[in-house]
């Protein structure tokens, strides 16, 4: 029998991420696919690719934890845990001294605070709207005829920044047009958009002590976001090796930490 594998699968609203750990908790496989409309298929595809990389097969999986927006859709997962706990767990593994985690996902932004002992003491999620999320950036970029990558590239060129105040995606679009009319540079406007996200994060960060790390797909792909966060929060923001996979990594770690007796029964790993 091959050595057991532990799987974390993060079914997000935009992307589905998978991480496979071996019995020494070394990361041996990972993959990301677009979630699309079929979460079940996306999860299966991400798992198969990750297992291929890990040189394993499904029956080698000793325990699997699903997380993310579509966590309950993964019928073959042994348990599910929220992305909040998983991002915290993943980030803490990379940076044991981290105290604040900023996860900017497709449809929500979360700020998680850990105690000195690494215990989750507080977390906040954005209110119901796209403000301060990946969707906000993507749709505003789209209005400008740009991809998210191009928006990021532009913002990185910026020497100053335009101010975009609005929390609302629609109004932010109008503001962008106003800034263009005022003759502001496009790169500065792009940076203004990233800073508006950073301002939302600043509001959600109740206590500003200790090291901060950013996780999630937007952090992974947009250097401008890290720059904006660092400027607005006036502190360094760490970017882990696989920011987009932080949730899946945390889920895989939780899977590996679940003891054997619980592996057969638990649906919520947090039931322990």
């Amino acid at each position: 029998m091959s050595a057991p594998l532990f799987v974390g699968i993060d079914v997000g609203s935009s992307a589905t991420k998978c991480v496979v750990l071996n019995d020494t908790r070394a990361l041996v496989g990972h993959h990301v696919v677009t979630s699309g409309f079929d979460y079940v298929e996306a999860a299966e595809t991400a798992l198969q690719h990750s297992l291929l990389q890990a040189e394993g097969v499904k029956k080698d999986v000793a325990y699997c934890v699903s997380t993310g927006y579509g966590r309950e859709r993964v019928a073959w997962a042994d348990g599910h845990v929220t992305e909040i706990t998983c991002h915290a767990r993943g980030a803490k593994e990379w940076y044991p001294e981290v105290r604040g985690i900023i996860d900017i996902g497709g449809q929500d932004t979360k700020v998680i605070r850990l105690s000195e002992e690494g215990r989750m003491v507080d977390y906040r999620m954005n209110a119901k709207c796209a403000a301060g999320t990946g969707t906000f950036l993507e749709s505003t970029a789209h209005k400008l005829g740009l991809s998210l990558g191009e928006l990021d590239g532009l913002a990185m060129e910026s020497k100053a920044h335009a101010v975009v105040n609005s929390y609302c995606t629609v109004f932010a679009g109008t503001e962008v047009i106003e800034r263009i009319k005022e003759g502001q540079r496009l790169d500065d406007i792009a940076m203004g958009l990233f800073r508006s996200i950073a301002s939302r994060v600043a509001e959600m960060l109740a206590v500003r002590d200790g090291a901060l790390a950013a996780t999630g797909g937007v952090a992974a792909h947009c250097g401008a976001l890290i720059r904006a966060l660092e400027e607005v929060l006036e502190t360094q923001v760490w970017l882990p090796p696989m920011p987009q996979h932080a949730g899946a990594y945390g889920a895989a770690l939780l899977a590996a930490e679940t003891n054997v007796a619980e592996r057969s029964s638990a649906r919520h790993v947090a039931d322990r």
Binding site: T82, T85, R119, M120, V121, Y123, H268, A270
Partner: peptide, 10 residues
């Protein structure tokens, strides 16, 4: 759910 996970952690 995350809140209950937090309570479990506590």
């Amino acid at each position: 759910e995350a809140f209950v996970e937090q309570l479990a952690e506590y």
